[in-house]
């Protein structure tokens, strides 16, 4: 794979994960468990959509064809989306959403820390800006997991159920494909082995504090970075892309 194509693909992958994560969090808007948390969820959603926008803008400059950032977000179908599978999973209850935010932001933090060393200045600049946001998301969600895990019987049950539902999608975040191979050789991105180990340490630390058990399962589902998704993404995109599909180039 040519470096430029690989970079395009890689930026889309990061942008798509952030976009879909942000869209999911936006589903909480006006439905949060209480006012303050409702606003926190919307803030996090906007952070992720902002990160996606920066990456779509950059990706649009790397594409052979003419694509605007909006085209990339709103006119690609399910199989052309490269987000990790974790973020497209349904929000479920509040515990499941916080588990998802935790697992993903712990990953994003490690990823961005590595990208600070990228010799691609756009990516390293992006990482420097975005890492502050995901660190806050990580802190916010960690606090909730610890609270759930040390709370009532119901909160303990729900947070354990959340990790049982989501754990099989975590390995997918660390998958690598042809795009990675081309970028790693050029010092633009890095292999995910080290990331995975650091992520696991972070997860273990919080799960210990929260008395959460990692499910014992070999069931691992991957494919997001290659455009192979679970049943949830198509439904999400239908809603997210409705306006641009029904009224292309609509302005207001």
């Amino acid at each position: 794979m040519k470096t430029k194509d690989a970079l395009y693909n890689y930026c889309l992958r990061l942008a798509d994960s952030n976009m879909i994560h942000g869209q999911r969090l936006a589903e909480w808007c006006s439905r949060g468990p209480f006012l303050e948390e409702d606003i926190a969820l919307s803030n996090m959603s906007l952070d992720m959509i902002g990160q996606a926008e920066m990456l779509y803008e950059y990706a649009s400059t790397q594409s052979e064809a003419e694509h605007s950032a909006d085209d990339l977000a709103f006119r690609r179908s399910e199989r052309e989306y490269f987000n990790c599978l974790l973020v497209e999973q349904e929000n479920g209850d509040f515990a499941q959403t916080m588990m998802k935010v935790f697992l993903y932001s712990a990953f994003a933090k490690q990823l961005y820390e590595s990208l600070l060393n990228s010799n691609n200045e756009t990516l390293s600049g992006f990482a420097a800006k975005a890492i502050k946001e995901v660190k806050y998301h990580l802190r916010h969600s960690s606090e909730w997991l610890i609270r759930f895990g040390n709370g009532t019987d119901e909160s303990k049950r729900r947070v354990q159920q959340a990790v049982t539902n989501l754990w099989r999608f975590t390995q997918d975040m660390f998958e690598m494909n042809d795009a990675d191979a081309a970028l790693v050789d050029n010092g633009i991105s890095f292999t995910t082995e080290a990331l995975s180990a650091k992520w696991q340490l972070n997860v273990n630390e919080i799960f210990t504090a929260a008395n959460i058990n990692i499910p014992e399962t070999n069931n691992t589902i991957t494919g997001g970075y290659n455009g192979i998704h679970t049943e949830h993404l198509g439904v999400m995109l239908c809603e997210m892309q409705y306006l641009q599909r029904a009224y292309p180039d609509a302005k207001w």
Binding site: E36, I39, A40, N43, Y136
Partner: peptide, 20 residues
Amino acid sequence: SLHAADKKMALQNARDLYTR
């Protein structure tokens, strides 16, 4: 003002509500 269960949550909520 805001609602929160403890100091930590109060600081986080204050950050989200009043320092955007």
